[in-house]
Design a protein around this nucleic acid. Structure first.
Length: 868
RNA sequence: GCGGGUGUGGCGGAACUGGCAGACGCGCAGGACUUAGGUUCCUGUGUCCACGCGACGUGCGGGUUCGAGUCCCGCCACCCGCACCA
């Protein structure tokens, strides 16, 4: 299916409107308070006098009625040239098109939609786009299974999801849709790759990589979860391969330091996870001479102050250095057997806790630079080849791992940090005065570190150093359904970039290609695609057969939304500077490390290319929780799967959206067994009836209306707004419920349906509900005699005077216990309130004529009388 | 092991910088309307008892304070992330 077939629904020219639909002016432009009122056109319908008891709230009918109207109105198109509203960019993580939307999508998109719609109501020009993260293995696996091109499966699912999103009432700007598997999109992945290649940020190297034997492809460290492939849960093994990397480690410091900009705006948990993942540590590099070797070996340590306590030396068993040191020694055979055994071990084995230390003595010795002591050299798998230098000085007294190794192999242990007197552990890693350490003796950790680094630097045998847990990002994948790497391998010129004007390097048709995983990219087997002339020398050459990790696609997609059809660049820098950074990003915490770190990295690279002012892509981040069932994640095999389409059919779109939003704090998981979509529907019907009961005419001035109800209305609007801006969506909904209850009471047993305050309340309910339950709100708005769309009605202005209570209840405490209540004016003075409180019978009885020990007055809400 | 988080009625959850614990909803109970109720509307609903102007109550134990769900110290339980990163 061609890409055009899945483009945005043709919504027609905005000027051609359905009969009866009147277009509205941009609501809030030019209003300084960010609020607005719709100009009230002539009534399109006479409001019903009272709700007909036989009338029923029918969500299905409302959905049918309003979808077409919204298609015509397109209330959420953004970025038009004549739009002078202030801008806001609200971004939802784009979905992978793996089938229809599920409950998780429903939650995430409901929350994002509430935020986007809220800012529209507040008078902002909100960019709220959507697209599809459309490359990836599931499409390829489905293609293999069905013997089809992955394109067909992918575009079918995109069409399904898109229709579902429209029906779900998402306020997306459908003019900006993008799919990462379109050549128009991935062309720019290739373009960015080439910019990085030019700057040395994309490079190829041979190293031991994570290999998924089932997916038959390499994996980034980030895609290995607990030793298993993130996608298929196969046990990941190691393989030595030459692969493409992006030099994210060059940005480690900036990725860490710029988190200061995100503090308080992103969840602390996510920032902490990123910090841990980058894992910056400071310490020193120390050179150790090796007997019988010309070059010294450098080790990295965070504790150079413990150098006098080094009693042996360990190199990573799978490092080149280990093999070199073992060669020709009596230990060679033993070492080789050990190495072979190590390689058979998977990450799973390595994860076992309390795993005994193993290793091989290499019959070589290193020399401790501080005292000339010979240190036996061991090879062991407890030292990692790819962290630091792959070799360590072992200080068993101050490192538990070294302690374990030392006790296993009978090696000496020398304390060089004095532990506290009550210390009864093994290795002591805390602070304390140095001992057995020559000129360091008596110094505490920080001073000792400084002293020893100075000493090493003077002698040229060491220096201060920083290390990171973060590794460079391995992006090569031996699979078909991804962005081809735009490099041509020429026997003469080596790695030759594809010239920009030849981009995109398009994926060939999968027709006739065997996509079955076999350890090499299927593209390489296709000579018609692979064999090309070298752009430099014109000689025969081959394209790089691999495709990029799909995380490349999602690392910059938020920039492409600005103009997804642009052909002269990935985006327009001027436009990007007008919209970026994204004001609000909404998505799952599952991407707390991978996607967010890569997107931050790309943003910094793009900044360095001079194309973007921003250094961070996402200002605020909201991580929604999961939707679970009966306490555990939904899955077919567990038999607790709840189908979104079923829920929508039974309760309606609005009730499901409301249930998601009202369930609790957005970052908490929702157990579908604990919430009540039927209750949500009941509330929506109650709100909807309210609109039918109003008998005053649209435009009626609320000023003469019932003061008590007006106070509730304005208080509700005010509180709801504050709750929404703090992500307390459930509280905002509760405020709307309170307002509905108050209005109901006013109609049935109070001032009656004709009071202007009743209309004001009903309109406020409609506007607040327009964020959560767009169909119901739109219908309410129409029943109240207004033109669509309520989505653009503008957030109601709050009258501050109505927030002030006529009287407030003051509690009188005796020794901290509430004993009396007083109705007082809100502006009562402390002195007056104190006198009132002391005069109460409770206070008089408690004091019994004596002077109180203390009287705490917090006017106008509380007085605490403390008897002597 | 290291790091982070959470703990409030039968349930989901409220409670801004310490100030009436339990907003709002679900469930449950009772009532009104109704031929009917999987409708609507109203009322009640933390625990205990001696039923009061009562006592107790936010995982457990201490502390600070006139006053603690909120702050401090020490535990317990559960959840998440990392996992031999020297």
């Amino acid at each position: 299916m061609p890409a055009a077939a899945i483009g945005p629904p043709d919504l027609g020219d905005r000027a051609e409107c359905a009969p009866g639909i009147r277009l509205l002016a941009s609501p809030a432009a030019g209003r300084s308070d960010g609020t607005s009122r719709l100009p009230l056109g002539p009534m399109s319908a006479t409001p019903s006098a009272t709700t007909d008891a036989r009338e029923e709230y029918d969500p299905e009918a409302l959905q049918e009625k309003w979808l077409g109207v919204w298609d015509e109105l397109a209330p959420f198109r953004s970025g038009r040239p004549d739009d002078d509203r202030p801008r806001k960019y609200v971004l939802d993580m784009f979905p992978y098109p793996s089938g229809d939307l599920h409950m998780g999508h429903a939650e995430a998109y409901a929350l994002g939609d509430v935020l986007a719609r809220y800012w529209v109501q507040r008078g902002f020009n909100v960019l709220h786009p959507i697209g599809w993260d459309a490359f990836g293995l599931p499409a390829e696996n489905a293609a293999i299974k069905r013997g089809e091109d992955p394109r067909a499966w992918t575009y079918e699912n995109i069409a399904t999801q898109k229709a579902s999103m429209r029906r779900y009432g998402c306020s997306f700007d459908w003019d900006r849709v993008l799919n990462t598997c379109d050549p128009d999109y991935y062309r720019w992945n290739q373009w960015f790759f080439l910019r990085m290649f030019e700057r040395g940020l994309a490079y190829r190297k041979a190293s031991s990589v994570n290999w998924c034997p089932s997916c038959q492809t390499v994996l980034a460290n980030e895609q290995v979860v607990g030793g298993l492939c993130e996608r298929c849960d196969s046990v990941v093994t190691k393989k030595k391969l030459t692969q493409w990397y992006l030099r994210i480690t060059d940005y480690a410091d900036r990725l860490l330091d710029d988190m200061a900009l995100l503090e308080g705006q992103w969840p602390d948990k996510v920032l902490q996870m990123q910090r841990n993942w980058i894992g910056r540590s400071t310490g020193a590099e120390v050179q150790f001479a090796i007997e019988g070797r010309d070059e010294p070996v450098t080790v990295y340590t965070t504790r150079p102050d413990t150098l006098f306590g080094a009693t042996f030396f360990v190199v990573a068993a799978d490092s080149d250095l280990a093999a070199e040191l073992a060669a020709g020694t009596p230990a060679q055979a033993e070492f080789e057997a050990y190495l072979a055994a190590t390689k058979r071990e998977t990450d799973i084995d390595r994860l076992a806790s309390d795993r005994p230390k193993t290793g091989v003595f290499l019959h070589r010795h290193a020399v401790n630079p501080v005292n000339g002591a010979p240190l036996p050299v061991y090879a062991s798998d407890y030292v990692l080849a790819d962290y630091g230098t792959g070799a360590i000085m072992a200080v068993p007294a101050q490192d538990q791992r070294d302690w374990d190794f030392a006790t296993t192999f009978g090696l000496p242990i020398v304390r060089t940090v004095t532990p506290p007197e009550d210390f009864d552990g093994e290795a002591y890693v805390g602070d304390g005065p140095a001992m057995n350490s020559g000129f360091l003796d008596g110094l505490h950790k920080a001073e000792a570190i400084e002293a020893i680094i100075g000493w090493l630097e003077e002698r040229g045998s060491g220096r201060a150093a920083v290390n990171y847990r973060l590794r460079d990002w391995l992006i090569s994948r031996q699979r078909f359904w991804g962005t081809p790497i735009p490099i041509i391998h020429c026997p003469v010129d080596g790695e030759v970039p594809v010239p920009d004007e030849q981009l995109p390097v398009e994926l060939p048709d999968a027709e006739g290609l065997d996509l079955t995983p076999k350890g090499a990219s299927p593209l390489g087997a296709l000579d018609a695609w692979s064999v090309v002339d070298c752009p430099r020398c014109g000689g025969p050459a081959r394209r790089d057969p691999d495709t990029m990790d799909t995380f490349v696609d999602s690392s910059w997609y938020f920039l492409r939304y600005l103009d997804p059809k642009r052909t002269d660049g990935p985006f327009d820098p001027a436009e990007a500077n007008a919209w970026l950074p994204v004001d609000q990003y909404v998505g799952g915490v599952t991407h707390a490390i991978l996607h967010l770190l890569y997107a931050r990295f790309f943003t910094k690279v793009i900044h360095d290319l001079g194309m973007l002012d921003a250094v961070e892509p996402f200002t605020r981040l909201l991580n929604q929780g999961m939707v679970v069932m009966d306490g555990s994640a939904m899955s077919k095999s567990r038999g607790n799967l709840v189908r979104l389409s079923d829920e929508l059919a039974v309760h309606g779109v609005d009730a499901i959206r409301l249930t998601m939003v009202f369930a609790g704090p957005p970052e908490d998981d929702i157990d579908w067994a604990d919430v009540s979509p039927a209750g949500s529907k009941k509330f929506l019907a109650r709100a909807w009836r309210l609109a039918g009961d109003v008998t005053s005419a649209p435009g009626t001035d609320p000023a003469g209306g019932d003061l008590a109800l007006r106070r509730v209305t304005h208080r509700s609007i005010h509180d709801a707004a504050r709750a929404l801006e703090d992500y307390r969506f459930n509280v905002a909904v509760a405020k709307a419920m309170e307002l509905v209850n108050a209005a109901r009471k006013a109609i049935d047993s109070g001032v009656g349906p004709a009071d202007p305050a009743v209309r004001e309340a009903a309109e406020a309910v409609a506007i607040i509900l327009s964020l959560v339950a767009p169909y119901t709100a739109e219908e309410m708005w129409a029943r109240l005699g207004h033109e669509p769309s309520v989505a653009l009605a503008g957030w109601p202005a709050v009258d501050e005077a109505l927030l002030v209570q006529e009287s407030v209840t003051c509690v009188v405490q005796i020794a901290g216990k509430v004993r009396e209540r007083l109705e007082v004016a809100p502006d009562i003075t402390e002195a007056a309130l104190r006198a009132l409180a002391l005069a109460t019978p409770a206070a008089q009885a408690a004091l019994g004529g004596r002077e109180p020990r203390a009287v705490i007055v917090r006017a106008p809400k509380l007085v605490n009388v403390v008897p002597a």
